[in-house]
Nucleic acid binder design. Structure first.
Length: 411
RNA sequence: GCACAGGUGGCAGAGCGGUCAAAUGCACCAGACUGUAAAUCUGGCGGGCUACGCCCUACCAAGGUUCGAAUCCUUGCCUGUGCA
């Protein structure tokens, strides 16, 4: 029956289950069922903005154990273009990544490319960083683009505020983000219903089978904003939840604010989100920040840090980050991290990596990116295990003692 | 041997009477990077100090001109190119 199509949008089978909970904190261990696979949470998602996790092949990202990666609608919209991606059979097939993909909407570019965009109620006009041409991103075309790319999780277009931002400004951006979320949701519902009608499949619950047309299995997440104002954060979360989405993101953090604010803002945001839905903290991050957020009940993370810093010569280790390019690394005949079992650490010495960076050899960028992503896998696995065994708080304490303190000792 | 052209900080290379402890690049040292305009960016890079300023030693060497020289003159040494 097609009589109640609209209701199907909000009554899909839940995509998320909490598997176990930590007793001493809000940390949870769960799983996320998406069209291209099941994702264990908490999860860290490597960033592959332009349909590539920079310097690494899909085989490498897979073999590290990643079940989901991020890509970016703004970047892919500009190049190679959504039409091409759709004609190629979707983003998964285009880049040959068969596991899950989450796309950011371009909301972050509202922040990071603030000097070349103009925000209006209709949407955001960008002067392309590639060739200067002007492009309008609207809640509708962003939602449609992500469905056409066939991604597993799409993000609503949002307005990511800078830091610092006035309360009045933060409120305006929050309100606009809410209005845009509604428009994204409406557009996605409209397209979904239209597609189902076209295929004559009728209403009802949409199966999560990967054999289904991808555009029907894309899940839309809205983004909680509110700047650095707890009351706004809370209001943003509450009003977003009223719209009913399969999962919720917290945005607008890790944009340069003091680190102490992060925990407070996450707490204010997450406290108003439903327990039974996944929570995604966008753009975070540093291991210590991930711990703060997991403790407050966040399930999903993404960050450029392991790959970008890897390319810039910083390796993550259990004893804190270390700089491969400094003098100290020149003659160190041992692995980056003696506790690491990644392919880089199994085979290559710090002095060799140091040489590769100094000599400007590509391999250095790859090997350290690989190591950093392997480190994040180990790190997240240990977080999961500690939650299962209900000793997350202890794990966090131990980790920070070693990660932060040893960094300070070295300094 | 003769004729030109040159000798500047680790290297390359600007400067060609004062505003020069000397542009710029590389190298070197340190740091940053959180929904990627990023294999990027920011500092530092003669020595010393009671340091947002001061003092010393510095542009091949030694003399000289000048109030003042990396910059002009003389000689020496060295390098490159051409001719013998």
């Amino acid at each position: 029956m097609l009589s109640n199509q609209k209701s199907t949008i909000n009554h899909q089978k839940s995509i998320y289950s909490v598997l176990s909970k930590d007793n001493g904190s809000c940390a949870r261990r769960g799983e996320l069922r998406l069209a291209h696979g099941t994702v264990q949470t908490p999860v860290f998602m490597p960033v592959g903005t332009q349909a590539t996790v920079k310097t690494l092949s899909c085989e490498e990202v897979e073999s590290l154990g990643y079940e989901i990666i991020l890509a970016n609608t703004y970047h892919l919209f500009l190049r190679p273009g959504i039409d091409l991606l759709e004609a190629a059979g979707g983003l998964h097939r285009f880049m040959s990544w068969n596991r899950c993909i989450l796309t950011d909407s371009g909301g972050y570019q509202v922040f990071s490319l603030s000097n070349r965009r103009q925000v209006k109620e209709e949407g955001v006009t960008f002067a392309s960083h590639v060739d200067g041409t002007r492009h309008l991103l609207t809640p509708e075309n962003v939602a449609a683009s992500q469905m056409r790319m066939g991604v597993d999780i799409a993000m609503c277009l949002d307005e990511c505020p800078p830091y610092p931002v006035s309360e009045a400004m933060a409120r305006d951006m929050m309100d606009r983000t809410l209005r845009w979320a509604k428009r994204c949701q409406a557009e996605m519902g409209r397209l979904r219903d239209g597609e189902k009608g076209r295929r004559g499949e009728g209403g009802g619950v949409v199966s999560l089978s990967p054999s289904l047309p991808v555009s029907l299995s894309t899940r839309l997440f809205p983004i909680v904003q509110g700047g650095t104002y707890p009351a706004l954060r809370k209001e943003s979360a509450q009003r977003t939840v009223e719209m009913d989405f399969p999962g919720y993101a917290v945005g607008g953090l890790s944009v340069g604010e003091p680190r102490e604010i992060l925990g407070e803002m996450v707490e204010a945001s997450v406290s108003a989100l439903p327990f039974e839905k996944p929570r995604y903290l966008m753009g975070v991050g540093k291991p210590q920040d991930i711990l703060e957020a997991v403790e407050r009940g966040v399930d999903m993370f993404d960050c450029v840090l392991p790959t970008r810093n890897g390319r810039n010569g910083q390796a993550l280790t259990w004893d804190g980050p270390r700089n491969i390019r400094n003098n100290q690394s020149r003659q160190e005949d041992g692995p980056l991290d003696s506790a690491c079992s990644c392919s880089t650490c199994q085979r290559y010495s710090v002095q060799y990596l140091s040489h590769l960076f100094r000599a400007g050899e590509f391999l250095g960028l790859r090997l350290v990116s690989l190591h950093n992503l392997a480190f994040m896998v180990d790190f997240i696995n240990q977080i999961r295990k500690s939650i299962e065994e209900s000793r997350f708080v202890e794990f966090k304490k131990r980790f920070l003692e070693r990660y932060i303190d040893s960094k300070e000792q070295r300094a």
